[in-house]
């Protein structure tokens, strides 16, 4: 496969993984918690490196998973001790992120990670960093990692679909019929963490947030069915990734930044033009109501 195809495949995998998870975050009103986690995984990655002295995927996933859960847990703890939830999120993510940045610069000589890379990702290098087993080149390792995470996510969502659905829609009812709502919460947060860390190499920690939130929010304005929302969101993720790549080629700009911008444009268009929930159709409906 060509260089460009690999990049588009990587971006699309990010779009699909993030797009699907993002829908649940939006419906559960946890978008900002996801934002927080996408920042704090940086600490997880640095710690994983300092412990294992390797930048291999599995350590990163474990480290990020642990810190992601820790983030969700700390926010929960602060919230239950009386801090309003948005402030709790703000305090936790900035602290852990700042700690991550400090560790990174303190061990700058040892860690082959630079902060700009962590933030903005470097999808252009993805195709050269390939996975080889027994001398055979199996393609970019990022694609393998993202693919694995996507499959894990899909399996988990498939297995717990109805539990996730009911605990998102009506947590009280879910608790009443015996569904462990807290377990579902932390399950989703772990999925966010591993998705973030797998995507982070390519689009960077901050832009994962765009992929997590924007496609889901767009899909939310387009459909009234959960399953359709998941699919549309994934498709918009892919379109943003591919569109972003071409836009970046044309104007010679950051690929990840351009993916986020394209996603934003798609959202803006949907926000105005969506047949049912768009600004325009609402205005028209109001107008026709007045003229009647």
């Amino acid at each position: 496969m060509s260089y460009g195809t690999w990049i588009m495949l990587t971006g699309s995998l990010v779009g699909v993984s993030c797009g699907i998870i993002g829908c649940f975050l939006i419906l559960r009103k946890m978008a900002m918690l996801a934002d927080a986690i996408s920042h704090t995984v940086l600490l997880g990655i640095v710690l994983a490196y300092l412990v294992s002295h390797s930048l291999e995927g599995i350590y990163m996933l474990v480290g990020a998973g642990i810190i992601g859960l820790l983030t969700a847990f700390l926010v929960q703890v602060l919230h239950s001790s009386g801090v309003q939830s948005d402030a709790a999120i703000g305090v936790v993510f900035t602290s852990l992120f700042a700690f991550g940045v400090i560790l990174l610069s303190a061990f700058a000589g040892k860690v082959h990670l630079d902060v700009n890379h962590a933030l903005m990702g470097e999808i252009t290098f993805i195709p050269w960093n390939t996975l080889t087993i027994g001398g055979m080149d199996l393609g970019p390792s990022a694609v393998w990692m993202l693919g694995t995470v996507l499959i894990i996510n899909l399996i988990l969502i498939f297995l717990f679909y109805k539990e996730i659905k009911i605990s998102s829609f009506d947590p009280a009812m879910a608790t009443a019929i015996g569904i462990p709502v807290m377990f579902i919460h932390y399950l989703l947060m772990s999925m966010v963490s591993i998705t973030t860390v797998a995507s982070f190499d390519s689009v960077g920690a901050i832009l994962v947030v765009a992929m997590l939130i924007v496609p889901g929010a767009t899909a939310y304005l387009l459909t009234d069915k959960l399953l359709a929302m998941l699919i549309i969101s994934a498709v918009i993720g892919v379109i943003s990734a591919i569109g972003g790549y071409y836009a970046a080629l044309v104007w010679n700009i950051s690929i990840s930044g351009s993916m986020a911008s394209i996603a934003g444009l798609i959202f803006a268009a949907t926000f105005i033009l969506s047949p049912r929930y768009g600004l325009l159709s609402k205005l028209l409906a109001r107008k026709s109501l007045i003229t009647e």
């Binding site: 419906l27 659905k165 829609f169 009506d170 009280a172 009234d224 959960l226 359709a228």
Partner: peptide
Amino acid sequence: SVDWDFPT
């Protein structure tokens, strides 16, 4: 007690 905007 629930958000009726839920897509379902």
